[in-house]
Simulated scan of single mutants.
Amino acid sequence: MAAALSPAASLQLRPYPTLRLLSLYSRASTTLRTSHSLPPPFRSLPRRRCLCTVITGALYSGERTKRELVEKPRGELGERVGEFRRRLKIAEIKGKPDEGLGRVGQSIAVMGWVRTLRVQSSVTFMEVNDGSCLSNMQCVLGSEVEGYDQVESGSVSTGASVWVQGEVVPSQGSKQKVELKVKKIVLLGKSDPSYPIQKKRVSKEFLRTKAHLRPRTNTFGAVARVRNALAFATHKFFQENGFVWVSSPIITASDCEGAGEQFCVTTLIPSSGETTDTPLDTIPKTNNGLIDWSQDFFGKPAFLTVSGQLNGETYATALSDIYTFGPTFRAENSNTSRHLAEFW
């Protein structure tokens, strides 16, 4: 790439606007149209090479263009995007030893999802969480807040995504040391009235039916953070001691330990929407009535791995100090804490 672009840099080309550059191409031809005033060296070049060359020349000689782009005022849309990007994560505010007291008096903006909303006669308390930590940011809103009409109309409810701006003040409550006195609130996304994750506790059996929302609960959020810390510590220990991580295959044709049942991976069984026949009748068979694995995706039986040990042994004979860390699967139908279908 450097060798291909260096000749263009020495020619000091003047920049061509993007729209004009695109208009130089003919749909039926692979060369540039010659009706435009391109420099002679580029009139007969192939399309791809000329595109790279002209763009490179524009970048190299575009000091005036660069200055114009910097000095050009941003439009209304750009200003709004920049405004929403100016925010702090709640973990940056409440995750320090002083729990946010060092930011008292600062004007900040946070974004997140509404966890709870309590509308009272003179004030509204709203807790917002952005996923950066388990702790919520309590926001205090009065009727004078810009955008408060969205709260009064019921558009802001539990589960809605909001952007709030205000001043950090000492909290009057005992559950947190600081809170946000809101000056402006913007509703980014409404929440359906049937939003199931409310303040009251829900069972894990119920959360199984709401897989797309359960990560917002404290339980699943805490499990994800603990698992992240354990995985990071595992990699950190082995990496600091000179080990090489080997990513063992998840789909394999071998049974590493031979002690547990394996999950079979096959494309021979069609889905119910692809055929009206029963899956048993559509599985290809050999002349003696056995499954014809030669017609399967891999041409032979394949399974989810039960262990990365066998693959690790082969790499240990080449790289010496190695370790494996990845998912393994056991098809043991036992509903106990000691027999998991998937584990690492």
Rank of each mutant, 00 (worst) to 15 (best):
W344S: 13
N228V: 05
T53N: 01
P17C: 09
S254T: 11
A4M: 07
R87W: 02
T30R: 09
K285R: 15
V186P: 01
D149F: 02
S171R: 03
T34E: 14
G82D: 14
Q172T: 07
R47Y: 03
D130I: 13
Q176I: 00
P39A: 04
P41S: 02
K94N: 04
M111E: 10
L268M: 13
S272T: 04
V223L: 15
G242M: 13
T31C: 13
L290T: 06
S161H: 03
I269S: 03
C50R: 00
V178W: 01
L280Q: 11
L213Q: 01
G102T: 09
K94R: 09
A58V: 03
M1Q: 09
V202T: 06
S171I: 04
G221W: 02
L180F: 07
L280P: 03
L117N: 01
K66N: 09
R14A: 13
L59T: 01
V156F: 06
E342R: 09
H339P: 15
T275R: 06
S155W: 06
L13W: 00
N228F: 14
L310W: 04
V186Q: 04
A331P: 15
S191G: 12
R338E: 12
E68K: 11
P196L: 07
S26C: 10
L310P: 10
E144Q: 15
T276S: 14
G95M: 05
E274Y: 03
V265G: 00
S271W: 02
Q262T: 07
Y25D: 06
F238W: 09
K89E: 05
A211N: 09
V54E: 00
F206G: 06
M126I: 05
C139L: 04
Q295Y: 06
Q12T: 04
F303K: 12
M126D: 00
S35T: 11
A3G: 08
S171Q: 05
M1W: 08
P249E: 11
D255M: 08
A91G: 05
L13C: 04
G154V: 08
A229F: 12
Y195D: 14
R225K: 13
P17Y: 01
S10N: 11
C52P: 00
R115Y: 03
Q239R: 08
K210C: 15
E342F: 09
V182W: 02
E92Y: 05
N228L: 15
L319I: 09
S272Q: 06
P17K: 08
T282R: 11
T328N: 15
N311A: 11
R214Q: 03
I250Y: 02
S294T: 12
V169S: 08
I250W: 01
T275C: 06
E99S: 08
P40F: 00
T267L: 13
V169Y: 06
V151L: 12
A253D: 11
N136P: 04
D98P: 01
A331R: 15
R103H: 12
T18A: 15
S171M: 07
K199Y: 05
K184E: 09
S121Y: 00
L268N: 08
G258R: 06
P39N: 00
R214N: 05
I90T: 02
Q106F: 09
V168W: 00
S157A: 12
M126N: 01
G57C: 10
E144L: 15
D130P: 15
P40R: 01
V104M: 11
P17D: 10
R74S: 10
L19S: 15
T276A: 11
F298K: 07
S23D: 14
L340Y: 11
Y148A: 14
T209N: 07
S334E: 14
R330H: 15
L187E: 08
N218P: 11
G62R: 10
K285Q: 08
